[in-house]
Amino acid sequence: MMKNNERVFAMSFASVYPLYIQKAEKKERTKVEVDEIIFWLTGYDEVALQRILDQKTDFRNFFGEAPQLNPNASLIKGVICGYRVEEIEDPLMQQIRYLDKLIDELAKGKAMEKILRKN
């Protein structure tokens, strides 16, 4: 299991980002919404995201250098890739799965205010 985590942590965010967009667009959602989710979760903005994509930053540094993980991220619950996100013990893997889960919710047609855990 650990080796698998390391492989994921070393993946460049830029290699996965187009897949998030593809997944969203297949379900009539947009890149703008994907970016909004990323900004909400990490505190990055457009300029910083572009730099991450250009520099092929890996997931470890993508989350490690994030300006601020959203305090409401702990409200993200449910199953992604067979794991309950709220029960994942490795903090970095949990953050990666939070993002996967939010993109999944977007693709499933959930309203943005629900995805962004607004009351």
Rank of each mutant, 00 (worst) to 15 (best):
M1F: 05
M1T: 11
K3M: 05
N4V: 13
E6H: 03
E6L: 12
R7V: 10
M11W: 03
M11N: 04
S12G: 07
S12D: 10
A14L: 15
S15Y: 09
V16Y: 06
V16W: 07
Y17A: 09
P18L: 09
Y20K: 06
Y20M: 15
K23M: 14
E25M: 12
E25L: 05
R29T: 07
K31T: 14
K31H: 07
E33H: 07
V34C: 03
V34M: 07
V34G: 10
I37W: 08
I37M: 05
F39M: 13
F39V: 05
F39R: 03
L41E: 14
T42K: 04
Y44P: 10
D45T: 11
D45M: 03
D45H: 01
L49D: 02
L49R: 04
Q50C: 03
R51I: 15
R51M: 12
I52S: 06
I52D: 11
I52A: 13
T57N: 05
D58S: 11
D58F: 07
D58M: 09
F59A: 03
R60T: 15
R60D: 11
N61P: 14
N61H: 11
G64N: 12
G64L: 09
Q68K: 09
Q68Y: 02
Q68G: 13
N70I: 02
P71N: 02
A73S: 14
A73L: 10
I76P: 09
I76G: 00
K77I: 15
G78P: 14
C81W: 09
R84H: 09
R84P: 07
I88Q: 00
D90R: 01
D90C: 08
D90F: 07
P91Y: 06
L92F: 06
L92V: 06
M93N: 08
M93Q: 13
Q95H: 08
Q95A: 14
I96A: 05
I96K: 00
R97N: 14
R97C: 14
Y98V: 11
D100S: 04
D100F: 13
I103F: 01
D104M: 15
A107H: 11
G109Q: 11
A111W: 08
M112K: 02
I115D: 00
I115V: 15
L116C: 03
K118H: 07
N119I: 15
N119K: 04
